[in-house]
Design a protein around this nucleic acid. Structure first.
Lengths: 295, 295
DNA sequence: TTGCATACATGCATTTACGCATGGCCAACA
DNA sequence: TGTTGGCCATGCGTAAATGCATGTATGCAA
């Protein structure tokens, strides 16, 4: 009575995903394979685990329990893998970094290029996403995060403080400066209802032209003249066609951290990347904190 | 970076077994497969896990750590499997019973036959071994054990008390009775140095003809006239050519228990077998505790 | 030394698992 | 009522994992 462990992992993925396709995606196989593995597991156990429904596989109680056990097994796997990686003193093999898209596009790309040149045997994977990846689950080895504090279970190092500011195309900025009481057009992030208070103090009348859930698109819209926007100062360096709104001071924003799991503290690969990041941010500190000098 | 869980299980088996063959045996595959899985795992991790030696695979630190994690995963697997089995209210499918060889040969065989007739859909496996199988690791569902008390983690039910006595062929017994001071030949279990005290009281002069590590063989030798022996009373019923040594009273011995894991208490299959065992031992109690009536 | 047993390594044939493509079912929507 | 997109089921060809057979090294005992 030997039960295939990878079948347990498959059941876990299917309970998590709800459909064959989602589970298959998670496991990097086709859903055909998932279906067959589940079928095999059910035959071995001599009982059904899922209800086949048009909208997906509905896990029954047994499947949920199996998945819970598999989740604990998965935690064991992640832990030992972290420990093995952490003990690794080589400068070769895989290393995964996650960072906000914006940061990579605007600043980190050259650093990454330099790093890859310096350590050609390290197979660096960059996951440019704004989602919070789970370092415990080894979705990444190092994470660059913008937040007030690092998570509790992770160890972090503060790379630098940053601020954001309000920008617009030169004509828009000039018009606003000429008549602060006139209605000022804005593009805002979906999370916010209105332009920042610091801007409303000098430009009380505003009109929100559009909302965006993506900062890159928002910047593009602002450059096209759709309206003013608030954005991190570190974006300003590469956007000379956006100028600060006169009279609006930069505001403090969450600092930038580099985080890793405790188990990876000793990892040489993670260390050298962390060092490179620290050097970079120390050298470029002012780009994150100060308004660019007017040209 | 997905690591195959069954490769972890393979590493565990190899660390435990020490050689490819032992691990392969444990996993019910060929050692070729074990070797290849280990090779694959090492490639994926980018480091060696075992030293190949002429006397076997010697695990390095990493392999030991991996095995430790895999052992915890295995514990999870066993637990969930026990729970699923325990919840099973069907009277079909596999069920594993372990019991001492002697008990099965002498008494339980007809009970097992009756049980299989009554529940033809239960696929009963009987493991007739004197080794203590690990119910936690699902090596068996139910165990019949002869011991002073059930283990601490298991739940048990006392089936009956038993005693043992001293027996010999009729000529040998008659000769001893005629002259208690004469030298009496014995066959003894390897664990014991000398005949039981209860016998030495009346027959102080003894000579050990042979030692055995197997009770069946010992009985065969005694029947062939090699010497007297101590054996459980329950063996006497089927051995009319061995008679009790006169003047030697039966001695208390450890009672007989039926044990199961806590998780299996609710299992219908285990319940019905346990009930059958209890009925059997209640009905045949005296065969385990009393000397057979002389014919 | 010469078997002999036990270990690992390797090449080849087969089985097994897998991915792909097709088809059916059901719901949402025009 | 047709259409589209999301599911799942099934059949077929391929690729990967496995088993078997052979070869080699090592240690033990006659």
């Amino acid at each position: 009575m030997q039960f295939n462990w990878d079948d347990m992992r498959t059941i876990l993925a299917l309970v998590r995903g709800g459909t064959l396709a989602a589970a298959a995606d998670d496991l990097s196989v086709t859903y055909t394979t998932v279906a067959r593995r589940v079928q095999r597991a059910e035959e071995q156990l001599g009982r059904a685990l899922f209800e086949r429904r048009p909208e997906g596989y509905l896990p029954m109680q047994e499947a949920c329990d199996l998945a819970a056990a598999a989740a604990r097994m998965e935690a064991e796997e992640h832990q030992i893998m972290r420990q093995l990686t952490g003990r690794d003193q080589s400068l070769s093999g895989p290393l995964v970094l996650t960072a906000p898209q914006l940061l990579i596009q605007s600043h980190l790309a050259p650093l990454i290029t330099g790093f890859c040149d310096q350590y050609p045997d390290i197979e660096l994977t960059v996951r440019a996403t704004n989602e919070i990846l789970d370092l415990t689950r080894r979705e990444a080895d190092l994470a660059i995060r913008i937040s007030a504090s690092p998570g509790d279970t992770l160890v972090g190092h503060r790379l630098c403080d940053q601020r954001n500011g309000c920008f617009a195309t030169p004509p828009l900025a000039a018009a606003a400066a000429a008549d602060p009481q006139a209605v000022l057009n804005w593009v805002v992030y979906t999370a916010y209802d209105s332009p920042p208070q610091s801007a409303q103090k000098h430009y009380p009348n505003f009109h929100i032209r559009a909302r965006f859930d993506d900062m890159s698109s928002m910047v593009a819209a602002a450059r096209a003249g759709l309206g003013a926007l608030r954005m991190p100062l570190f974006l300003a360096r590469d956007l000379p066609d956006l100028v600060p709104l006169p009279q609006v001071a930069p505001q403090d924003y969450a600092p930038i951290w580099v985080l890793s799991h405790r188990d990876l503290l000793q990892s040489k690969k993670a260390q050298v990347l962390k060092d490179a990041l620290r050097r970079y941010f120390r050298a470029h500190q002012s780009e994150f904190f100060d308004l660019p000098a007017q040209m």
